[in-house]
């Protein structure tokens, strides 16, 4: 990929101490890079650490180890001014549009909050900017003085998007932005995100559990399991030539809206649940549920390595 790298994580690790039980490893040595104008899909099931990864990137959590580089610079060494700049450039859209807006503030206040903090569009321009943003996300100026409870779920998500866009970010971490919405509303919000990216050259880190939605918008997709990236590839490659057994199981678990195809399809049913991320043992995180696990898988954690051009997998069996 020729576009310059915007953000990079190197061996990023985030753990949480749980009193009396040990250490929960949410993100276990994740290295990813995100290019300008690119969408990187981050896919995984509940508890795999994808949200923690997103939150660490927007500096809601401080990593325990590893680095986050923004345009090549370590964000933990940023000065106050650089930090403010980073927090402007990197925005987040949250999963629950009901919980992420202040119920006591009118929409224009919520959208303009970032403008005030960063001193953008002062004076008269502020109001105009808010109206422009509302229009950008498909709402209109009458909506500016309403409260969040007066909107539907899809409209609230549009407000969340307008708020993220207000400060002209470069990267938006989208944390399950559509999973709380009805199917037809999901498509509308997705189309909006795609259009905004095209118009503004945004980069997205798109966190989701929905493999069929993320396919169409991502340039590359990373699959996460128990805090680790197990496979990373260009979107089309991941769906056609995936080589990690977890990716395979994940893809085969998605039911197709096609009874004949379903009847003839071979499905890999994983046994049991995702193991607890508390006090992780050595070895491959997927070994306990993997149909192909060998003794080495339980002892040694496989590195993420390139199995073909741009296609990475962390599996002793792969490639």
């Amino acid at each position: 990929m020729s576009r310059p790298v915007l953000l990079e994580t190197k061996n990023l690790r985030k753990t949480f101490e749980i009193k009396g039980r040990g250490v929960l490893t949410a993100v276990n040595g994740v290295s990813i890079s995100l290019h300008e104008g690119e969408t990187l899909g981050m896919v995984g099931e509940s508890g795999c650490g994808k949200t923690t990864l997103g939150r660490t990137i927007v500096k809601l959590y401080r990593p325990d180890a590893g680095q986050i580089l923004y345009r090549g610079q370590d964000i933990s060494r940023f000065s106050r001014a650089e930090n403010l700049r980073y927090r402007k450039d990197v925005q987040m859209i949250y999963q629950d549009p009901y919980a992420s807006l202040d119920p006591l503030s009118v929409v224009s206040t919520s959208i303009a909050e970032g403008l005030d903090i960063h001193g953008l569009y002062p004076g008269k321009a502020r109001r105009e900017r808010v109206l422009e943003l509302l229009q950008m996300v498909g709402l209109n100026k009458e909506h500016a003085n309403r409260f969040p409870h007066e909107f539907s779920g899809g409209q609230r998500q549009r407000i969340g998007i307008a708020r993220a866009l207000a400060v002209e970010p470069k990267l938006i971490v989208c944390d399950e932005p559509i999973s709380a919405l009805d199917v037809s509303i999901q498509a509308q919000v997705m189309n909006l995100l795609v259009r905004l990216q095209r118009d503004m050259g945004l980069s997205y880190l798109f966190i989701t559990h929905d493999l069929s939605m993320v396919r169409a918008i991502s340039d590359r997709i990373a699959v996460m399991y128990l805090g680790s990236i197990v496979e990373l590839a260009p979107a089309a490659t991941l769906y056609k030539e995936h080589c990690h057994p977890y990716t395979e199981a994940l893809l085969s678990a998605i039911p197709l809206p096609d009874p004949d195809a379903e009847a003839s399809r071979r499905r890999i049913l994983l046994k049991g649940d995702i193991p607890s991320p508390v006090n992780l043992g050595p070895g491959c995180p997927f070994a306990s549920r993997c149909p192909h696990a060998r003794p080495i898988c339980r002892e040694q954690r496989p590195e993420l390595r390139e199995v073909s051009s741009e296609h990475f997998a962390a599996c002793h069996e792969a490639g």
Binding site: E45, A249, A253, P255, R267, L270
Partner: peptide, 8 residues
Amino acid sequence: LDVTIQAQ
């Protein structure tokens, strides 16, 4: 539910 659990 998650997809792999949904399949179960």
